[in-house]
């Protein structure tokens, strides 16, 4: 069984990856219309499953109780609504409140799903690639920090082990000694880091750091396919925004349920569906192409 599938959307330029997630999460937090919510929920789940495989399903199973909880709790705080289901301790538990809760729950879980996918797709170097263009020095600092953190962890455990093996740490020490010991390790770590920093600085200057204007190299390319997809994405986002602006996604849950349904709703939700389906479609298409190619052999 394949646990982790290859994500082909990741192979597009990071700008596209980032733009997509910004749109998906941004719009997802904005739209409360059921049609839009369903799109966002289904497609966020689908995409997460295409990149994480079985793990994606497990994630969803864990989400179910969360959805129920969020949906059921909302009416407890929001008593507005015309259809009263029952009354407890003198407070009304309304249908509108419940529906609103369901909507919030679905929105919340879709956003979670998008963030989970974001974490899998947007690795640190992609993030740095995008922001390095605007802030070259900050991006270098970021890369160096990313290297520093695991280095520190490793060294700290080395010092810990070394000290344990000469009887300077262990389970039979008092609290005061433990704190003292921790401080000693920390000071040793600091010395080591400073010493390493000097060498790193030498190594940087020796390779021309500070000798003039720096450029930023990235292994990512911006191909024609990236351009095409970017234009499509921008077009869809613009269309969705227009439809939203024209009231296509307007919805009121409490006190009276009012769900708009007009031509803008249809166009808007279809476009929304198309936008959010992009990464999943790319992944599934690629899978199908490979199946076909393989079957020809």
């Amino acid at each position: 069984m394949q646990v982790k599938n290859k994500d082909n959307f990741s192979s597009y330029n990071p700008i596209l990856n980032f733009f997509f997630f910004v749109c998906a999460i941004g719009l997802g937090m904005f739209f409360m219309h059921p049609a839009f919510l369903v799109c966002s929920f289904v497609l966020s789940l689908l995409y997460y499953v295409t990149i994480e495989g079985l793990k994606g399903f497990k994630f969803f199973v864990l989400m179910v109780p969360l959805i129920l909880l969020l949906a059921l709790i909302n009416p407890l705080f929001n008593t507005a609504g015309t259809h009263i289901l029952f009354i407890y301790f003198g407070r009304a538990y309304t249908l509108e409140g419940l529906l609103y809760g369901v909507a919030i729950a679905f929105m919340f879980v879709s956003i979670l799903n998008w963030f989970a996918s974001y974490n899998a797709v947007m690795t640190s170097d992609k993030f740095i690639y995008i922001f390095g263009k605007f802030l070259p020095s900050i991006s270098l600092v970021l890369t160096m920090i990313l290297r520093l953190v695991p280095n520190f962890q490793r060294k700290a455990s080395q010092i810990g082990t070394a000290r344990m093996c000469i009887g300077k740490a262990g389970e039979n020490t008092e609290k005061k000694e433990k704190i003292e010991n921790g401080m000693t390790v920390l000071s040793g770590l600091a010395t080591w880091a400073l010493e390493g920093g000097i060498i790193t600085a030498d190594s940087m200057r020796s390779r021309g750091y500070g000798s003039g204007k720096r450029t930023n190299f990235a292994i990512y390319r911006f191909d024609s396919r990236d351009l095409v997809l970017l234009i499509v994405m921008i077009g869809l986002v613009a269309g969705i925004c227009v439809c939203g602006f024209m009231g296509g996604a307007a919805v009121i849950y409490t006190p009276v349920l009012e769900i708009t349904f007009n031509i803008y709703t249809i166009i808007g939700s279809v476009m929304y569906f198309c936008l959010l389906a992009i990464p999943s479609v790319i992944n599934i298409m690629e899978e199908i192409i490979w199946r076909i190619l393989r079957s020809r052999i």
Partner: peptide, 14 residues
Amino acid sequence: YVMQNPDNQIVTDK
């Protein structure tokens, strides 16, 4: 110029 310590000479994470 290549120095002794392999670790500290490296600047970036990739």
